[in-house]
């Protein structure tokens, strides 16, 4: 682990301190949308003890991870095919290019009507959004593998399969890891969005209902929790990527 950045941490502490002071006695005192850090901590305690926060976190995380798994699998397979097979590229590239321009949010209402307000609807919405970054990175990865690598395989009499498995695929791993990281982040975003607009559950809905109830402190609790989840995911993914990439990134 890297050393904690002391100065950076001190700055954050200072900002929170100033915020607390400003919200209690200063210019922010009349601004209801921005409660003080103390009020937010109190609301955090309430949400924990009334048992609504943890299930929402578990729900959102679980759905986002499932969506990410689906997206990473589908995106890897399609992307590798797209990168490796010019025939497959010829047939499908245009369709993918058209589909990719449709924002995932815009098909959420359609999915709701088709599938109802179920968890599977969330998963599908999340995985559709997250497949694209995975697919694009996998395809680019295959196409950017230096032709020399396959020639090395040829020199040593490798079959095409052996070239693919021993040389091309490992060479694409760094791109796959970049795609997977983006897919996880995108899946989380799309899941939160789906919870806000089509399937009222999880953290996304917690955010909306706190807003509707004008519970500003509670709303901020959810915002902070979403931030933590993003931060933890990014640390975990960086660590996983490091372990799957012997020899370091190229």
């Amino acid at each position: 682990m890297r050393n904690l950045n002391l100065l950076g941490t001190a700055v954050i502490g200072l900002v929170i301190g100033l915020w607390e002071v400003a919200a209690r006695w200063g210019p922010l005192a009349d601004l209801d949308a921005l409660p003080s850090p103390g009020e937010i901590v109190a609301a955090f305690g309430e949400l924990l003890s009334d048992g609504s926060l943890i299930p929402a976190v578990v729900h959102t995380l679980w759905i986002a991870l499932l969506a990410a798994v689906v997206a990473i699998s589908a995106g890897t397979v399609l992307g590798l095919l797209l990168g490796a097979s010019s025939a497959f590229r010829l047939v499908t590239q245009s369709s993918f290019d058209v589909l990719r321009t449709i924002p995932a949010v815009s098909i959420m209402p359609v999915l709701l009507l088709l599938l109802g307000p179920e968890p599977r609807t969330e998963i599908i919405a999340g995985s559709i959004a997250a497949t694209w970054p995975m697919l694009v990175n996998a395809a680019d990865g295959v196409r950017s593998v230096h032709p020399r690598l396959a020639e090395v395989g040829q020199v040593f009499g490798f079959s095409r399969t052996r070239v693919a498995v021993r040389l091309t695929l490992p060479a694409v791993v760094p791109n796959l890891l970049v795609g997977a990281r983006l897919a996880v982040v995108t899946a989380l975003l799309a899941t939160l969005l789906a919870e806000m607009i089509i399937v009222p559950t999880g953290l996304g809905w917690a955010l909306i209902s706190a807003q509707n109830a004008i519970q500003m402190a509670q709303m901020w609790v959810v915002v902070v929790v979403c931030g933590w989840i993003g931060w933890l995911l990014s640390i975990a993914l960086t660590q996983i990527a490091r372990n799957l990439q012997p020899g370091g990134a190229r």
Binding site: R148, L149, L167, A171, V173, G248
Partner: peptide, 12 residues
């Protein structure tokens, strides 16, 4: 090959 950088496997 002249370009050893492309001909070797950095993950090995």
């Amino acid at each position: 090959f002249q370009d050893y950088g492309n001909a070797l496997l950095p993950w090995r």
